[in-house]
Design a binder for these strands. Sequence first.
DNA 1: GGTGTCTGCCCC
DNA 2: ATTCTGC
DNA 3: GCAGAATGGGCAGACACC
Length: 554
Amino acid sequence: MSKGVAFLEIEAKLEKFAETAEAVAGTTKKLEKVAIVGDYLQSLNDADLTRAARYFAGHQFAQNDSRTTNVGGSILSAALSEATGFSGDDLYPRYVRLGDAGEVAEEVIKAVKHNTPTITLAETESLISRLSETRGTKNKIALLSAVLHRATPLEAKYLVKLLAGDLRIGLRESLVEDAIARSFVQPLEKVSYANMLLGDIGYTAVRARAADLQDVGMRLFHPIKFMLATPAADLTDIARTMPDEFLVEDKFDGIRAQAHVSDGRVAIYSRTMDEITHRFPELVQPLLTLPTDVIIDGEVVPAKDDAILPFSGLQKRLGRKKVGTQLLIAIPVVLVAYDLLYANGRVLIDEPLSARREVLERLIPASGPLRLSIAKSFNDASQLDNEFDAARARGNEGLMIKSPASFYKPGRRGREWMKLKRAIATLDVVVTAVEVGHGKRRHLLSDYTFAVKRSVDDDELLNIGKAYSGLTDAELAELTEYFKQHTIQEFGHGRVRLVQPTVVIEVTFDRVQPSNRHKSGFALRFPRILRLRPDKLPTDIDTLDTVRKLVDPT
DNA sequence: GGTGTCTGCCCC
DNA sequence: ATTCTGC
DNA sequence: GCAGAATGGGCAGACACC
């Protein structure tokens, strides 16, 4: 409880949280959002401050808490149905119209109930916690519907949004940090640094209010955020951004990993700062043999000796509770180390990359299960074409280009690090089905399923992927009208439409994989739309044979 | 026991 | 992951 | 330049249902 502030001891209501969220959603101005959230947070006692800060950041639990509710659209809809008497068939068209499960909940609760606000943030926390403990879909539905039964429209709206995993009010964790910093008069950098290391925006808020952020420093086994790279458009983009001399490494297609080693203990963290050590047991021993305590940044890559294996193999080791011996033999992994954030009792992130690498290179061997990423110095971006091809020939994805002067900026995506990837090809395809979007795209048919044709003389269309990204809002709006007029058949109350196959688009992707997802027997990795091709007829599109030639060996 | 559906601050 | 948009 | 929003595919695990 906060010190000597008795009037704050009243239990916070979900209704008030929801009203505040509505006010945040009501403006697009960040400073206004931050002020609204900040004012509200100040009015809460410590326990509720913890909860509200988490919920505003869109989290059900603290980041360092690995629990999940395993509640999604299906359970939310069933619980809402049970609480209101509306059938799934009543709810579905509303979802299509409103594009947000929370808004559906608000609308139907308003229609059938006249509850007064009773739900507290404490109860909200307990509901979420019980949902994570409850086994069985039916039990989860019963638990949730009992709460929705006595909820006001606004309470239901934000309960559902929270459980759906996204508030959609134009507020992310970084703005919550900003609100905490401003309202408790602490430097923003200190707040976000503390949040990262504490792994809980809620506890961070409490510490910020108590002006107790000074001794939150980097510690082993508290992961820090990863520095990210900006995609390079082309080589001139690199040339104009990088200094005269820059470092170039292969870009590995694996899992980004941060390894902490100290005192006979090893922990490996993923980009979302979850501990993933148990999935890669073969890396523990090599890390333990290091002569000093370290925090290493690198990539877990599937590899047999020097040969890099495809990413698809590695996926079989993800999300697994136990990795069996067979899998360990079939898909061995190595940790390719490319940065060093801590060593010999010293924090290195505020030293230039060149200095960090110097220490790293003395520490890590060139080969074996723990190996060094080779960094070459270049002064001419035009030489990167060859280097790129060489990286691809080695089984890697492309190149990373880094300024040797760059400090390690946790959580930042700057231009001091760039990544170069290249699409292997593009395909001309025809749109066969469209779907409505969500949130602010709820009025648009924004999601396109597309097909190639079976062969040069067989026009049978075979779906191969889905994409939305790449088109502007204006193009989406225009296509929405067009597709409404060229719909063959509607499904799911207009959520999905089969359309006349007339719109040709050019799509790109990182690779083609065999898959059962689509009728073609293939799927695309990272599909995106390059442009509309009004100059092409549906009969001009690419064929399954073309696709086959692009398939990655797996 | 086999199969299909839903879920994940999943991983990319 | 990628991409577009508003600030 | 940054943050936010909305979107893709594949995988294992947990369940419901047969």
